[in-house]
């Protein structure tokens, strides 16, 4: 706890960012963009009645657009911010000075992560008015909104840990950012490929496939944080989530079905484990004494 709440880096980052004009500008741009997406989505889902009477039920159709674009932008922001986190300190040669103090690499990495989460929270909280249009007018509960905010923290930690890792590995911030996006998408794409290969194998071996939930393989999607959002979307839009995909399949062991019921918790657990792994790797890269 002390690692997070009394972290000198976190405090310094916030001090610096409170002074820069960049962040309010970016937040404004971000909200404008979000509002635009909301309007366009409204136009699409409600094209016939945009200038006429409103079909409020159709508003719930806007909601996935907003959620997806917000999550996408957050992931991008986190990659940009954390991509320069360690490499920036290295460039200014302040990392070296820090390493002569009792500051541990873990504290440095955690401070950087904390800073990115606080910044992302500013984005998310500032966008609550726009979000609430989609959520509440769309007939969703405030609780769903709260859950969404929680999930943005989760995705920030996930992408942030990859970002800090890449930033501790390469010297150029730009390269670290691209590498973050690359590694992040590679993990999700790899999971998808595993799933597809399994599917093809099952077909080739002509095992009876009832539906896409064959053999409980959808569980591999626990290894991508995107599935947690998909599950969230499905749940709040009155589908039962990933669980509903699996529950009618009689080939799947009961335990798998049971697990899929707790998709959010499991998904968060698994991906936070992956984040911890990246964080651990980055502490090694930060603290590595040159040979």
């Amino acid at each position: 706890m002390k690692l997070l709440f009394k972290n000198p880096i976190l405090r310094k980052e916030l001090q610096i960012s409170s002074r820069s004009v960049k962040i309010p500008l970016v937040i404004m741009g971000y909200n404008l963009l979000l509002a635009m997406i909301a309007i366009i989505a409204l136009a699409i889902t409600n094209a016939t009645s945009l200038w006429g009477t409103y079909d409020y039920a159709a508003l719930s159709g806007v909601f996935p657009f907003i959620v997806c674009s917000e999550v996408g932008m957050i992931m991008l922001f986190v990659a940009i911010i954390t991509g320069g986190s360690i490499s920036g300190e290295r460039e200014k040669q302040t990392l070296e000075v820090m390493l002569t103090t009792p500051m541990t690499p873990l504290a440095i990495a955690v401070g950087k992560m904390g800073a990115v989460i606080v910044k992302i929270m500013m984005f998310v909280i500032s966008s609550i008015p726009i979000l609430s249009i989609a959520f509440v007018l769309g007939g969703l509960s405030w609780l769903a909104l709260l859950e969404f905010v929680g999930l943005t923290v989760f995705i920030s930690i996930y992408v942030g840990s990859i970002g800090v890792f890449c930033s501790s590995l390469v010297k150029k911030s730009m390269l670290a950012m691209l590498l973050t996006i690359l590694i992040g998408s590679a993990i999700s794409i790899f999971v998808l490929i595993v799933y597809i290969v399994a599917y093809l194998l099952y077909s080739a071996l002509s095992v009876r496939i009832q539906d896409l939930s064959f053999g409980g393989w959808p569980l591999v999607f626990l290894f991508t944080p995107i599935s947690v959002f998909v599950d969230f979307l499905a749940r709040v839009m009155n589908v039962e989530g990933i669980y509903s995909l699996l529950k009618h399949n009689h080939d799947i062991p009961g335990i798998v079905k049971l697990l899929s019921r707790f998709w959010t918790v499991l998904g968060i657990g698994v991906n936070m484990g992956v984040a911890a792994l990246f964080l651990w790797l980055s502490t090694i890269a930060i603290g590595k004494v040159k040979k």
Binding site: K6, P8, R11, K12, Q15, I16, R19, S20, K92, Q93, T94, E96, V97, M98, T101, P102, M103
Partner: peptide, 18 residues
């Protein structure tokens, strides 16, 4: 090894807290 956007006293406090 200094930051652009930090004041002199803040810089000192930053390292002090380490």
């Amino acid at each position: 090894g200094v930051y652009d956007n930090l004041k002199v006293l803040e810089y000192m406090r930053f390292f002090g807290s380490m």
